[in-house]
Amino acid sequence: MTQAAAMMSPLPSEQASAAVPLPLKVRGMTVSYGATPAVFSADMDIAPGAMTAIIGPNGAGKSTLLKATLGIIPRLSGQVEVFGQPLDRVRARIAYVPQRASVDWDFPTRALDVVEMGLYRQLGLLGRLTRQHRSLARDCLDRVGMADFAGRQIGQLSGGQQQRVFLARALAQGADLYMLDEPFAGVDAATEKAIIDVLKSLKDEGRTILAVHHDLSTVPDYFDNVFIINRSPVAAGPVATAFTETALQSAYGGRLATGLLDQLFPSAGPAPMPQPFPTLDA
């Protein structure tokens, strides 16, 4: 009833935009494994229909933030809103791709079975897996270029292939918000290309993507926005404004290779002088 009323009354554009909730809104997230917090007081807003990378040095709490947001690990404090609602109400709209190393790939199951796990919310506890479900799962495998491996035991797949099976499972969920933990970690170049193509096509369909990412050199190519964290947020926003040398230096400290910084920000800092002729009197 309130929905109908809202649809009928013409709203000023400002209110209308406020009425469309963000895909993900995190406030005051603090997570601790021991005495020191792994993530401290993090606020995070994820823009709709865009690809956002969570970046930061090792141990900065990137995965922890993602897992605590999804309720996989407990948090000390913090609120999470997904599409303006508590997590439990909108689980069907979220797809999560865990780190590949987090599961035992020796598990007795085939690639297609893993993808069909993504249909759990559709099927429910006792719903029967129909021919349509199976062909949907096959389509998802096909989309990540793994159609030929449907019947393969997952332990016999390469790391990149396993990662693609995980992505296919997320596709089967038909979600609006995709949360991926290091989707490019330890995969081959062909897989990286396949995954980024799928993610970009998801974005073109208007879906939102949030990925923990560790390769800074590909951030500008792959992502629209960054969320830089080192236990607490350092910077967030579009790559053009937030992905700066200053922000990276502040998050990573001395752990960044200068070569990488030069490559990412060629205009910043003193550019090396071209020296076509080696001189002897240096």
Partner: peptide, 22 residues
């Protein structure tokens, strides 16, 4: 038999199982 699906999913991938509400 009744809990086959959630049992299998949560045994294979606990984190994922949590995110789909198991």
């Amino acid at each position: 038999a009744a809990l086959w699906r959630p049992l299998a999913i949560s045994t294979f991938d606990e984190g994922f199982a949590r995110t789909i509400g198991i």
